[in-house]
Amino acid sequence: MFAGLAVLLYVGHLAADYPGQTDHQSAHKAKKTLVGWLANLTHATTHVLICGALLALGALVLDEVTLQPLPTAIALLWIGATHSFIDRRWPVRWWMEHTGQREFLQHGGAAHVDQAAHVIALVAAALFLAAI
């Protein structure tokens, strides 16, 4: 069940992060303003909704995917919260500055570390759901 859940969540992530993210959200989601927080939270909500829809679809059509409401809600809350946190951008920058990646940061590496952090959070959610 883990593999099916991981694929569903990863596809949901890609759908929400690229075609599902507006230019406004991308430009403002890290700002320390009301506009920034609203852009960030609406983007994170997009992740929760798309991942939730894909999990529901997976539970309907894939024999190996069975979901329980409370653990699924917890996993989706985790996805929204971690996505919102990572997308504030300072956590990725802090990580790179404190783990010997300053040069990588200077050459566009933040986007890669950002995506790796999101995938790690998705794998954690898939592991949690598979273990229940």
Rank of each mutant, 00 (worst) to 15 (best):
H107S: 13
L9T: 07
A75P: 09
L60M: 14
Q25F: 07
A39Q: 10
H24F: 15
G36W: 04
T33L: 07
L5W: 08
A15L: 15
A6R: 02
A3C: 06
F85Y: 11
G58K: 02
L67P: 08
P71T: 03
A15G: 04
L38K: 14
R102W: 00
F104I: 05
L9N: 05
Q25M: 15
K32G: 11
N40W: 03
T99S: 14
T46G: 15
D87L: 01
I86Q: 00
L122I: 07
H47G: 06
L122E: 08
D114V: 01
T33H: 04
A39R: 07
A15F: 14
G58H: 06
G36N: 06
V11I: 15
H13R: 08
L5E: 08
Q21G: 06
L70C: 04
T66P: 01
F104R: 12
A110R: 11
N40T: 05
D63K: 15
N40Q: 11
A111F: 11
A59Y: 09
Q25G: 11
V119D: 00
T66Y: 05
D87G: 01
L41A: 12
R88S: 07
Q106W: 06
A124F: 13
G100Y: 05
L8M: 12
A125M: 10
V65F: 06
P71E: 04
A81H: 01
M96V: 05
L54E: 10
P69W: 13
L57P: 03
M1T: 13
T33C: 06
H28T: 13
V48K: 01
A59F: 10
H28G: 01
V123W: 07
H112C: 06
L105Y: 13
G58Y: 07
A81R: 03
Q21T: 10
Q68R: 14
A117E: 01
L127N: 04
P19G: 12
W95D: 00
F128A: 05
L62T: 05
W94R: 12
A110Q: 13
Q25C: 12
L14A: 13
I74F: 13
H83R: 03
V61D: 03
T46Y: 05
L105F: 12
V123S: 03
E103H: 14
L105H: 08
K32F: 02
